[in-house]
């Protein structure tokens, strides 16, 4: 009994600094945002008027909201599956006894270490109308494709960039998961006559489920919050024709171009709900609770 209490005190003492910081910088701002989203706020003069759910009505009636929804959903739907599968395949390759796998790992990890703004500028060099990619493609196919200015393609450049920079991180996560799988499971499967490919699908994947859940969740959260790449590529406008307008860029525009903090917080709330829903669905589908058990 005594021991339990002292353990509690110990635990609480250790948690205090983190709890204080978290509540000051996370809980209080979130609570304030809940309050702000029902007001029309001028941040500069500090005036606010209560307008109920008007901010939400305005957002739903804004075609740019739907453009942002379309862009962001496409983005998530394309990027998450591709980055997850590439990361998994690379991890599996590195986990097999390839020579110099440490060296490969080091080189492949570099994109994750590069800052996303620097990465965006590099990609803008590669994909501009006089850049390497456009010129090479022209030599190969004879077609000049204008990636950055074509509304149908501008977003895909950001997608490629994001996949390129997040794959290594997830690959390392998968790799650590793979190394935790006991070899006797593979031996047993081999004795039962399973081929390498069947071993991958029936031993590796089920064993990796908790990691897979983590990677997909973080992937979904990260891609829904895509901001800096879209901001730099379009110069903050979300153009051409709203084709690179993402949720977070839309929130930024509401707050600082339209100077409407109330609507920006309302939109942040909507984004929060969307991310929460998706994570809950992934959790349900992958039965993450049970496997972590």
């Amino acid at each position: 009994m005594r021991k339990k209490r002292s353990n509690n005190i110990q635990g609480l003492t250790f948690m205090t600094p983190a709890t204080l910081t978290a509540s000051l910088f996370i809980v209080v701002p979130i609570a304030y945002a809940f309050f702000m989203m029902f007001f029309n706020i001028n941040l500069l003069s500090g005036t606010r008027t209560f307008i109920g759910f008007d901010n939400f009505r305005k957002i739903i009636g804004d075609p740019r909201f739907w453009a942002a929804l379309r862009n962001t959903s496409t983005y998530v739907a394309v990027v998450v599956p591709i980055q997850t599968s590439i990361a998994l395949i690379l991890a599996a390759l590195l986990n097999s006894k390839v020579k110099f796998n440490r060296a490969f790992l080091t080189v492949m990890f570099i994109p994750t270490l590069t800052s996303s703004s620097a990465m965006t500028l590099i990609f803008m060099w590669l994909f501009n109308n006089n850049g390497l990619v456009v010129n090479q493609l022209e030599q190969l196919t004879g077609m000049r494709i204008h990636f950055l200015t074509n509304p149908d393609l501008a977003l895909s450049v950001i997608m490629i960039m994001n996949i390129f920079s997040t794959v290594p991180h997830f690959m390392v996560v998968f790799l650590s998961g793979l190394q935790d799988i006991p070899t006797n499971l593979y031996e047993a499967a081999a004795i039962d006559g399973a081929t390498k490919i069947r071993q991958f699908f029936h031993v590796t994947i089920p064993q990796l489920m908790p990691i897979l859940f983590y990677v997909i969740t973080m992937g979904v959260v990260g891609t829904f919050q895509i901001f800096d790449q879209a901001f730099i590529l379009s110069g903050g406008t979300g153009g051409p024709q709203n084709s690179t307008l993402t949720f977070t860029l839309y929130i930024y525009q509401l707050a600082f171009t339209s100077n409407d903090m109330g609507r920006a917080t309302a939109m942040s709330f909507i984004l929060g709900v969307i991310i929460f829903t998706f994570t809950a669905i992934i959790n349900k589908v992958m039965k993450a609770d049970e496997m972590n058990g």
Binding site: T149, T237, G238, Q241
Partner: peptide, 9 residues
Amino acid sequence: DNYFQAAVN
């Protein structure tokens, strides 16, 4: 800026 780009394209 958002739409003039479309005209430029």
